[in-house]
Design a protein around this nucleic acid. Structure first.
Lengths: 351, 351
DNA sequence: AGGTACTGTGGGAGCGCTCCCACAAGTGAT
DNA sequence: ATCACTTGTGGGAGCGCTCCCACAGTACCT
């Protein structure tokens, strides 16, 4: 019995057209009101708004997306397995900032993991279908092909932690170099003689910068850098344990460790304790991130605070600008939008 | 110079129409191939697939959503603040199962938090716009209006943990009653005389069932239930601490505690330790969930394992069925789809 | 009075799909 | 040879929006 095009929408949601009829105006006018265009008289706007309220009208996102060629959604892409996402407070803090900044927006946030090949292929497909207006990229390694894919598809993107000193994508980062410096300077001030460090993965630019800060702080204090005091980690607790074990084997006399993430510091602490070293009496320990872990550790961990939540907010701001700027592509300047937020050493009992 | 309707799609993505032209077939045929309809000859299918590959065609989701009145997306709704989401392994395990089951599907998973009023209003709007084909609801309290909203909007939904014994929505749950029983029976077998319990929030049905299991196990062993040995918690670590403190004050002689979640067990352990009680020598401790926390606790925690990941998978299965079943609504039977998965006690050093 | 602007509005065309009807061609029973 | 299916295919209509052109009305200059 159903007329041809009605296709089972039993009753169904009201459409723009119906709102227009109800308000006694044209379709275009309703569209203008819905989208907050200023070119509508107050009386008309009021009438339309009344009709919208009476009918309980909610715009059809699919239709809008099709007609306007946008999705009103952005993706937070995490190129890591979900496990790390949950294990590291970094991500949840970032998500908190992002969510907060997005709260008074119409934008929808999608969380996408791309930890293995399968997921990455899926993501590529997803991006090729332009299912999001923009992408937030966190924790990117130097050789990651994702940023280039994004550029090629002309999808606006903001990266947290540039891939190198000449990142082309807009980015938001914390002052990793300064943070590394301040951690080491602090340990020097405390009278520590043999300061080791546990690094992040070397193909992460931010991790490199922390090491640079470590080296420069030592040099500027007139000390030689002992390469045997530098052990590579990977931002995981297990990595912290491994690195700490190495360090103890190579330089049993060390009296301070700068772990370049709190999670690794937790791993290191465990190994130190098992080796019978007291913290901070025998070995001073400093972390990076100032996450919940730092506050709950025993003893509480001195750590370099990054304003992660703020970084999340800033990334959204940049991305929304970037999306809004998608005007006739040639009109856009090549201004590099790179933000660096300051870090701050939070001193606690571990050093 | 751009022709009227081209609207800035510079070059743009290929459309169905273009694929059809390239393959020398009609639009309908391409659509059939894309959607895996069997009513296409092998030769035609091959030709279309070749054209798709050559052109790098990717279907436009918005157009599909508009025409077919579906979104190919489902939402995992977490009616809790993000903090709890990250703090509790329950959610990450659930997400893992859900993600895995969804991996070979075209369905997109959205993660939506609805921890405060603002977010809930946003969610309501979101659902009213029918932006997802179905909803997964976890951790629902008895008085939550969300399930009813979903029913009213006729959006397929599956709930993890029914709201009561006569839940109307399809649900997947673990055997909370049996789990509670086995924990207490275990403690009895171990010769414990004064077994306390720290409960979850009382408006969560599953939490109630665990308490029922606790009571029945004691009764069946011929013991009286001492209400002073039951302290209310809320599934958080802090709640576990508070409850344990109460219990010690009320019944200093207790020699066993069944905490109805691992996180609360962690809180309880802390208080017990501060009170100088050794685990398991003075007080045996059993948790619920068998999460990572249980394995990493000192001493390792005996815990009731719930197959959370499996529950996630099962929920997806149910939901996809539910979505597929959206045929002429009257053709659907009222078969209640309620799944209960078994729990299993994992014994470790804490008891 | 005529021109030029701007403001507010209506509605046609089009976004890229899916759905379904129509129809050609083949198959097998009668 | 006829009828009744079945299989495969093409393409019209329509999903509910946005965009933009056209145009009426008003305001302010010459």
């Amino acid at each position: 019995m159903a007329s041809h095009g009605a296709r089972g929408r039993g009753g169904g949601r009201p459409t723009l057209e119906e709102v227009a009829a109800r308000a006694g105006v044209g379709r275009g006018t309703v569209s203008r009101v819905i989208n907050g265009s200023p070119r509508v008289s107050d009386a008309t706007r009021a009438a339309v708004e009344a009709a919208v309220a009476e009918l309980g009208y909610v715009p059809n996102t699919a239709a809008r997306a099709l007609a306007a060629n946008r999705t009103d959604a952005i993706a937070l892409v995490v190129p890591e397995p979900e496990t790390r996402f949950f294990a590291e407070p970094y991500f949840s803090d970032m998500l908190k900032g992002v969510g907060a900044e997005l709260a008074d927006t119409e934008m929808q946030l999608l969380l996408i993991f791309a930890g293995n090949d399968r997921e990455r292929r899926r993501l590529a497909q997803y991006l090729a279908a332009h299912r999001v207006d923009g992408v937030l990229l966190v924790s990117v390694h130097a050789d990651d092909p994702l940023p280039d894919l994004l550029a090629q598809l002309e999808i606006p993107a903001v990266i947290s932690g540039p891939r190198s000193e000449r990142e082309t994508l807009p980015s938001v980062d914390s002052d990793n170099y300064g943070g590394g410096r301040s951690a080491v300077e602090h340990l020097i001030t405390r009278g520590r003689a043999h300061i080791a460090t546990i690094t992040g993965p070397l193909d992460v630019y931010g991790a490199q910068r922390r090491i640079d800060g470590y080296r420069d702080a030592l040099r500027d204090a007139g000390r030689a850098v002992d390469e045997a005091l530098i052990a590579r980690g990977d931002f995981t607790e297990e990595g912290g344990r491994r690195a700490m074990t190495e360090l103890l084997a190579r330089r049993p006399a060390l009296d301070a460790v700068f772990a370049e993430s709190d999670v690794m510091a937790a791993g290191a602490r465990q190994v130190l304790r098992e080796a019978g070293r007291r913290i901070p009496d025998d070995v001073a320990l400093v972390g990076f991130d100032d996450s919940v872990i730092a506050r709950h550790m025993d003893p509480p961990l001195t750590s370099v605070r990054q304003p992660i939540e703020e970084m999340g907010r800033a990334m959204i701001d940049l991305l929304l600008e970037e999306i809004a700027d998608r005007r006739p592509a040639d009109a856009r300047g090549p201004e590099r939008r790179q933000l660096v937020l300051p870090t701050e050493l939070v001193e606690r009992a571990s050093s």
